[in-house]
């Protein structure tokens, strides 16, 4: 996983609430094979919002506006990523080229999947998000700075917003650690646990 430290990038405002993971990555794209390490899921990302039924780009959709082509940050609306647990939605975000999402709330499973893939998820109050939308619309192509170590978002005009993040996730994002690597160092503890667990749940002992 690529470490996440400071991101200074173009941000796009996406103010549609409750975009579920099925809209982020429609099922007909989600079932396609993704070659490890290849951004194959970029096409599916928000496909039906980005394109019409004839597969022509919807000119009025924010990500189709030329100024946002290089965006690496999406400032989303409430409950972004609710719904299905498909991790392809997180891959689609990544494959499209985004590294961070900012919004007032996120689907819980999606949030976890993003962090697992090195995408920072920043929760800010709705008022702060609305202010970011306002500044980004005033100045299309404006940049936002996200400093993970300091847990600080700097808006295009320089106003700053502090955010919370679960400390375990923060550390692993900063260092680019993947969970399996960390867990392998706990293997002796896992084995001790299993010994005890087999005795308590003895009817499961044959499979543990």
């Amino acid at each position: 996983m690529e470490p996440f430290t400071v991101l200074n990038a173009i941000a796009a405002p996406l103010d549609i609430p409750k975009i579920d993971t099925g809209m982020i990555m429609p099922g007909r794209y989600s079932r396609k094979y993704r070659r490890p390490g290849h951004p194959d899921y970029a096409e599916g990302f928000l496909h039906d919002l980005r394109f019409d039924a004839d597969n022509n780009p919807r000119a009025d959709f924010v990500l189709n506006v030329p100024e946002y082509q290089e965006a690496k940050i999406l400032v989303a609306a409430a409950d972004f990523g609710c719904g299905s647990s498909r991790e392809t939605a997180a891959y689609a975000v990544l494959d499209y080229g985004l590294r961070a999402l900012i919004g007032p709330s996120f689907g819980d499973i999606f949030n976890g999947n993003c962090l697992q893939n090195g995408i920072l998820v920043v929760v800010l109050p709705q008022e702060a998000v609305s202010e970011l939308w306002r500044q980004l619309r005033e100045q299309p192509g404006a940049r936002i700075i996200i400093d993970l170590e300091k847990q600080m978002v700097t808006a295009p005009r320089g106003d700053t917003y502090a955010f919370d993040i679960e400390p375990t996730r923060k550390k692993r994002l900063l260092l680019g650690l993947d969970d399996v690597g960390v867990t392998m160092e706990y293997m002796s503890k896992i084995e001790v646990f299993e010994e005890r667990h087999r005795k308590v749940l003895s009817w499961l002992a044959p499979i543990i």
Partner: peptide
Amino acid sequence: GASNQLSHVMATQT
């Protein structure tokens, strides 16, 4: 998640 978390469960049972 079907990728990172699932492979973590399969690799470590945790």
